[in-house]
Each structure stands twice: as structure tokens, then as C-alpha cells.
Amino acid sequence: MVDFEVVDLGPADHLEPGDEAPDFTRPLVTDEFWEDRSLSALAGPVLLVFTPMIGSFLAQYTWDELGERGWDDLETTVVGITVSTPYDQVRFLRERDVPFALFSDPTNEVAETYGVAHDLDGMAGVSEPRMAAFLIDEERTVEAAWVSREWPAFLEWDDVADALE
């Protein structure tokens, strides 16, 4: 049995529906390669999923869950973002056979911009994203937002699925 304490992250000053999603350019990683890409270069509506470091159980569970749901076949582009390096992401995508691409944001700057960064306890100046997801339309308007308020916490993927329909 894993023993851990639930941590209240408190409210986040995150993007809300109707806000413009900031554009960014970061390495977009697949299981084969990575290249710098911008959010605005992705086709169609986008579900941008923030997870903690790629090796964390929250990230592993999230990408396994979305793969099992078949969300790689949606008309909406599902893409992740995490503080992990492209090297760690490629290894993760290959080992777990994840059919999605991930943005690498080692400085956590994108999470800061979206209002979902949180400081790690006991580590001055070190932060990572909360579990969060933003549904963004073709004009980069946030259509829906889900942001965790505690760690560990999974997002309500059934609620996200309802919004995707």
C-alpha cells in the first residue's frame, strides 16, 4: 500500500472559458522524434493536458486512461505538456506505447502562463504543473477548463469527455 499525504494546492488563477489561450512554442515530442512546434500550429480544436513529471504515477495513469478511451481518434487534437525533457518523454512514449504527442516545458513557463504551476514542497524555486486540461478552439479561445486543487488528484475524465462531444 502506497502511503502519501494529500496536499491541498488551493485555488489557481488559471485560464477560464472565454479567455484566449496563450500561444507558445516548445519541443513537441512523439515516440519517434521531436521538433519545435507552436500550439497554434496544431490542427483543429485542442485538448491541452498538463501533467506532473512524466514518470509520476499521475502522468502514467493519465496517458494510459486517455489511450484506453481511444482519444487518439478524436477530431480534437489531444496533446500533453510537462516539465520533463524530450529524452524522458520519448522513452515514456515508447515504453508505454502512448499514441499522443507531448510538449516539453522544462522551465514550467507555459504552466505559469496558464495559471496551473505549483511549487513543490521543500524545493525552493522548483515547480511543476498541476493536473489540468484546457479545451481550446481553433481561434485559441478556452472552451472549458479543469484544474486540480489537490495533489494527488486525477481529473474527471468523464466530464472532459462530455465537453468533447
Rank of each mutant, 00 (worst) to 15 (best):
R140E: 10
S40A: 15
T76L: 08
V98F: 03
E32C: 01
F100E: 11
G18M: 04
I54L: 04
R94T: 11
A101P: 07
R91A: 14
W71Q: 12
F33H: 10
T141S: 12
V46S: 08
A59V: 02
F33C: 06
D137G: 12
R140S: 14
L74K: 08
D121P: 15
P27F: 02
Y61Q: 13
T113P: 00
D119K: 05
W63N: 00
A124G: 11
P52H: 03
P27N: 12
L39K: 00
D97P: 04
W146G: 12
V46Y: 05
P27V: 09
E68P: 04
V126T: 09
E35R: 09
L15E: 06
V46F: 07
M53K: 02
L39T: 06
T25K: 07
T82G: 02
A133Y: 02
R94N: 12
G55M: 08
M131N: 13
D121K: 07
D105M: 03
A124N: 11
A41M: 03
R96G: 03
E139Y: 08
T51D: 00
A111Q: 09
D31F: 02
L135G: 13
E20D: 05
A144D: 14
A133W: 04
W34H: 15
P106F: 02
T51V: 14
P52Q: 03
E109M: 05
R140P: 05
A101N: 06
I81S: 00
L74N: 13
F50M: 09
G18K: 05
L120F: 04
S84F: 02
D97F: 06
R91P: 03
D119V: 06
E95H: 10
P27G: 11
R91I: 12
A43H: 10
R37I: 01
A43F: 02
A43N: 13
Y114G: 04
L47C: 12
A145G: 13
F134I: 01
V49Q: 00
V110K: 05
S104R: 05
P52K: 03
F103P: 00
G55L: 10
D73K: 13
L135R: 14
L120T: 10
D31L: 01
R130L: 11
G122N: 03
P86H: 11
L47Q: 08
A111N: 11
E16R: 15
F100M: 10
D36E: 15
A133C: 07
T62P: 08
D64W: 04
A144E: 14
P99I: 07
I54K: 01
A59F: 01
V126F: 14
V78E: 00
R26D: 00
T107W: 01
I54R: 00
M53A: 14
V126H: 11
E20A: 10
F134S: 12
V49P: 01
F103K: 01
A144W: 05
E109S: 15
R96D: 11
E109P: 02
V29C: 00
T62F: 01
S104M: 08
V90D: 10
